Simulated scan of single mutants.
Amino acid sequence: MTVSSGDKSTFDPQSTFSCSHEPLLPRPDSSCRNRMDKDTEEHGPVPIHWDATPEDHGHIPIIDFSSYSLLKGAVDEDELQPLATQLVQAFSTVGFVYLRNHGIPAALVSRTFEAADKFFALPEEVKTKFSRPADKSHGWVCLERERVTMERPGDLKEAFNVRPPQATEKLWPSEEVPEFQQASLQLYDKCRQLSLRIIELMARGLNIQDVSNFLSLHDKIGTAANGTMMRILHYPPLPERVKPGQIRCGEHTDYGEITILFQDAVGGLEVQSCEGKYVPAPPIPDTVVVNIGDLMQRWTADKLASTMHRVLLPETEEGQKSHRRSIAFFVHPNKDTTIASLDGSNKYPPIKAGEYLDERLTSTYGGRKSEEKTVN
């Protein structure tokens, strides 16, 4: 299924959020053109609940998602549009939000982290048995194998990718950590459910007329016809010698539509502000971080912002000896979806979602297709 860029009725070009971004390629510059001030001038006060002081979460807003929580029974339609407005406002300026009261059980997240800890603690020769095959995305990715910034050495992290359609029994450590598979797949499905609610609200906030049709472009998440993947990431204590320029995760934007991120208490994520400075995005209890990826910025003709972020090395001795964990759920539309400017502007040439991902991976990895680049 596709959403035609030629039919402007699918998207209101006079949407409430008219702040512009620099074209996706090359990357947006660091000024952001004072997006927040611009929106306030044109449309009145920014409709976001700033629930914490800047010291608590930097420039990233916290949004209460309780009106569309996974735990919500009956949904009040009147509550959805204000929530959609808040989300799109944040995504059109900062590109990142914290969601509170999202409905994914904290116990399930903890259980997945604990199972992953057991896996990552296994000897390397054991983990190697579950390495990601060259032709698949599912499986273990060893330390320093990836680098998301080509100017830096390999990232000081390892990962376990979860792609249900490629997750053969041989690629799960069923004997070593029997609970790992069940916890990971349960969390994957909860993230799938939450991502569909976020996408529906984004469509409402962007004034897309046929929300059901737009949502149906994501109905194959968890199958081979969709590239959505979950990554469980482990950043071990720093080695005695760190290569020049090496960090835990280099500066990057995400490839896909949106990313849902769970952080442990260690933190370390930094997000580029509108002024071009990197500011901390610390873990806040009982929240998830959600950000826009490059594909969504392209799809909305730069209306929504895909923002640079990174994970630096800890500065304190205690931090350098610590383990950091995170879980990132990278959401993509179905591979056969045509990505064309939703406002009918044809700002970027139409491309299939699957082809776009392959093209980005090829340009990054020098002709070698690989797993999702972006990690947090």
Rank of each mutant, 00 (worst) to 15 (best):
K8N: 13
T10E: 14
P45E: 10
N34D: 12
D64M: 03
W50N: 15
S67N: 04
D12K: 12
H43C: 11
P61K: 06
T53D: 13
S5Q: 15
N34V: 01
G44M: 04
H57I: 01
C32Q: 15
S66N: 08
C32G: 12
D12A: 13
R35A: 15
S9V: 09
D39P: 01
P54F: 02
P61V: 03
G6K: 15
D29L: 01
E55M: 03
G58A: 05
K8V: 10
S20G: 07
S18T: 06
T16D: 11
H49S: 15
F11R: 10
T40H: 12
N34Y: 06
S5R: 15
H43S: 13
L25E: 07
S30N: 14
I48Q: 11
N34F: 04
S5D: 14
S5Y: 13
P13L: 02
P47M: 04
G6M: 13
C19V: 06
P45I: 00
S66C: 03
R27Y: 08
H57K: 07
E22C: 02
S66F: 03
D29C: 02
H21A: 07
D29V: 01
R33S: 13
A52V: 10
I63R: 05
T53M: 05
M36L: 08
T10P: 12
H49I: 06
T16K: 15
K38P: 02
P23G: 04
E41C: 06
G6D: 15
F65P: 00
R33A: 12
A52G: 13
V46D: 13
A52K: 09
H49P: 14
D37S: 10
A52I: 09
F65Q: 03
D29E: 10
I48A: 11
G44T: 00
I60M: 08
D12W: 07
